[in-house]
Design a protein around this nucleic acid. Sequence first.
DNA 1: GCCGAATGCCCAA
DNA 2: TGGGCCTTCGGCG
Length: 270
Amino acid sequence: MPEGHTIHRLALDHQQELAGDVLAVSSPQGRHARLAAVLDGHVLESVEAHGKHLFYDWLDAPGLHIHLGLVGRFRQNPSPPPAPSSTVQLRLAGPRATVDLIGATTCELIDQSGRELILGRLGPDLLAAEDNPEPAWTRLSGRSVPMAAALLDQRNLSGVGNVYRSEALFLNGIHPERPASSLSRDEFDRLWGTLRTMLRQGVEDRRIVTVHPSERASVGDGVVEVGPEDSFYVYKQQHCRRCGTPIRVWPVAGRRVYACEHCQPPPGSA
DNA sequence: GCCGAATGCCCAA
DNA sequence: TGGGCCTTCGGCG
């Protein structure tokens, strides 16, 4: 489930429940045993999210860089924590909480220059406290890449993943194949705003629900749990919830994109 | 039981 | 562009 909202939520949670304490760090699965030994017994000072990257800073120990990839996740443990399962790559155990890292593609020690290298490759973070769309606009405005590809390229802007790209393009009536260069500044600004709102909501909800409450089938007292059918406009949907047109699915930039070609007119169909 | 897919990304060719 | 890596889960025999 890791798009930018998940990563920023994890940073907030870990900052709150782990930072400031001495942590017991271990690698039950064994793969990161050496790394764990270096960090074990140190005080976690702070946790930061940038795009889909997590950075942990310690007192008198090197930084920790984690990227969850497609299937990685953190498992929250009850207190006291049970014995870790064999797939736990890294366990961070503090007096107030214990979290387990599973399935991550990157878990490494990193120095300041390594960190700057990563940050230098990232476009502006939609979830940064002070967002700055200008570098993204500059990069996109001259290019012919399809918008659906541009949104997944973290060098343009960071935090967007496969669900948010389809949903935000739909809400702005932008066909996935539209070249980035065809967007007006106004369209770009609205798209940026949509993505920022969606991602912020995702941080709060701890999940992705893009459909506006007034457009959900299960409107009512709002207590009703929102199911997958009611969470997305086009992602993994059969028909457009606004016009009924069958949703088209096809790969762009190696991932499946979903669109309503009535609400999102293909380029050149004017 | 096996296979593919899943909210990601890197690398080789 | 295609395959590899990480793990879990659901569908299909």
